[in-house]
Design a protein around this nucleic acid. Structure first.
Lengths: 219, 219
DNA sequence: ACTTTAATGACAGCCACTGCCAACAAACTG
DNA sequence: CAGTTTGTTGGCAGTGGCTGTCATTAAAGT
């Protein structure tokens, strides 16, 4: 079988993944703003679509439901953790690594996005539909943790210990994120709440990942 | 202020909580059966209502949405764990206690209910709406774990360590439940998969709860 | 220009869910 | 017993989320 390379396609090319990502993110920003202003129930799909400058039909093509419009923004928060998890060096425990390298504020995110994300997390406590979307997203992210842990521990992603550890880490991250969102409610993100958050996360992770053979150095 | 006792009420008394519980459970059974037979999307609210012998209007009074009809049945599974958690003696570690006392099959549940519950758990892997409801239910149950742990550790339900431990336990329980549902897929519930499940749960819990001061005896 | 492939928008329709009100049920009161 | 009160249920109409379908437009190649 010779690889004849990318066959010269005909007709209009599909939108690039990058473009699609940007489009979804843009819609997400408008949706979250509307949700924060008037609540989820009071915000209609037509409203979101108009704000984003697309037809309602295309909105439903980009998102399977109203609540999942928050997903692209929320993903940014989880990506911040995923990035630091990928950069986890072998000689450090996870808690140590986090204390040294965890920056919950993504450099690629604008300040407004961060505030919006935290606002969403706060909203999930009163809006069941948003909470459900939030939990679903977290569970999808858990798969990533499984992969990273499996590679590091040299075992299969199907191994029980790996999945349990990933689930525990995910759970800890949820608690810490909720706390972080709650504490930044009035005052915004100050440097001390930020370091406090990092410290809380590291402490909690150490609490849960100490059951490994080497007591946390490799997990 | 003298307590004049229960004032002699007038008019029709509200339905007892017990009656309401039974009604919801009955509807839940019919809904789950229909979901399993023809899928969630293909099952209409009117269908569920007819099967349960109530009007559609009353169905929506008993449940906020189609997917939450599975809740009363699913709760039974979580209640099984909650019960054993309440009976946790002070001198044992949680893993030890589980190995000795955990019966995932509730005595009060009929065999068909158990199968139905496991069927729902299996369905949640393909039906996002059901997965969302499942996760929401689990998170509500987490609050119970927090209360039990707080009382046992003699600290506040707001304490970080308590909430983290509860979240970790909840996460472990989720993994174990998914495995259990998967393993009972074809063959049904055999004694060996049951003991295997109990062993898996105990092992995984030990893995996650060893970070406590006494290494798991009190958590 | 013409063809091809993909994205979008417009329209119609289904169904989950809600508000509203009449009908009915179960208590107490005279 | 009729009459009153309080609560549940069912029917009906309406809203809005979401989908299937199709014509239209955009972006490529020949």
């Amino acid at each position: 079988m010779v690889d004849s390379g990318p066959v010269p396609r005909r007709g209009r090319p599909p939108v690039s993944d990058e473009q699609r990502r940007r489009q979804r993110l843009d819609i997400s920003r408008h949706a979250v703003r509307l949700f924060a202003e008037q609540g989820v129930a009071a915000t209609s799909g037509e409203q979101i679509a108009r704000a984003a400058g697309v037809s309602e039909r295309t909105l439903w093509r980009y998102f399977p439901g109203k609540e999942s419009c928050v997903e692209p923004l929320l993903t940014r928060m989880i990506d911040a953790f995923r990035a630091v998890l990928h950069a986890w060096p072998a000689e450090l425990s996870l808690a140590e690594h986090l204390r040294a390298a965890y920056q919950p504020v993504l450099d690629s995110s604008s300040a407004e996005d961060i505030d919006a994300v935290l606002a969403v997390v706060r909203m999930t406590h009163d809006e069941p539909a948003l909470r459900a979307a939030y939990l679903m997203l977290r569970e999808r992210a858990e798969e990533t943790f499984v992969e990273v842990l499996a590679e590091r521990l040299g075992s299969s992603p199907d191994a029980l210990d790996v999945r349990v550890q990933a689930a525990a880490i995910s759970a800890v991250l949820k608690v810490a994120a909720d706390d972080f969102a709650r504490e930044t409610a009035g005052r915004g993100i100050t440097p001390d709440v930020l370091t406090g958050h990092r410290e809380e996360l590291a402490h909690a992770l150490a609490l849960v990942t100490s059951g490994l053979p080497d007591g946390g150095t490799s997990a």
